[in-house]
């Protein structure tokens, strides 16, 4: 397998293919700043939970670095992400809306109480019609055999995948390390 592009995002730093991108904001505000700088054409971004915003922005920057034609339906690229805490940040936010004495369940929060929303959002945005999967794992290295198996599955049409670790504990504690990886 061959890695062509890689990005790391923390609350205070963005490193794309080894180069640090300068940002003025930190934490979740930085994700909004990145969206406005590098995408700004997907209003639904503001409805996404923080985990989805993190994965969305990481994928956007990777795909801009790749520079290939985008938004054309394709069946040869997968999206395979993982983390340890699933959608814990959003789960906690939702829990607050159903607490005793303040029971006003938020439908907009409820729809993000699953971590695989982020992989679906990346696929929808980019018209990827192949595999999308989000795994809840102990360690990032556990994802490697899953990626290999997915890309090399018999009869698979996959040539590449957006893969990586996408973790969000709260608005100021998150980490993403995503790559574009090719089968050959």
């Amino acid at each position: 397998m061959r890695i062509t592009h890689e990005i790391e995002i923390t609350p205070t730093a963005v490193i794309l293919d080894g180069q640090t991108l300068t940002q003025t904001e930190t934490g979740e505000k930085m994700l909004i700043e990145l969206y406005r700088q590098y995408a700004n054409d997907y209003p639904k971004f503001f409805k996404l939970d923080t985990l989805s915003r993190l994965g969305f922005i990481a994928a956007e920057l990777l795909l801009k670095a790749e520079g290939a034609t985008r938004f054309v339906p394709t069946e040869d690229r997968a999206v395979i992400l993982a983390n340890r805490s699933a959608s814990i940040k959003n789960d906690t936010d939702y829990l607050e809306t159903i607490s005793e004495g303040n029971y006003y369940p938020s439908p907009a929060l409820f729809v993000y109480t699953l971590p695989n929303i982020v992989t679906g959002e990346i696929a929808i945005r980019n018209k990827y019609l192949a595999e999308t999967a989000f795994y809840v794992l102990d360690k990032p290295e556990q994802l490697t055999p899953i990626i290999e198996t997915t890309l090399n599955a018999e009869h698979s049409e996959l040539n590449s995948a957006i893969v990586g670790w996408c973790e969000c504990n709260n608005a100021n504690s998150f980490y993403a390390k995503l790559q574009i990886i090719w089968k050959n």
Partner: peptide, 13 residues
């Protein structure tokens, strides 16, 4: 449709 549900909750809340 999700926004519609949020508006219903807003009226209640």
């Amino acid at each position: 449709s999700i926004d519609a549900l949020e508006l219903i909750m807003l009226l209640d809340r």
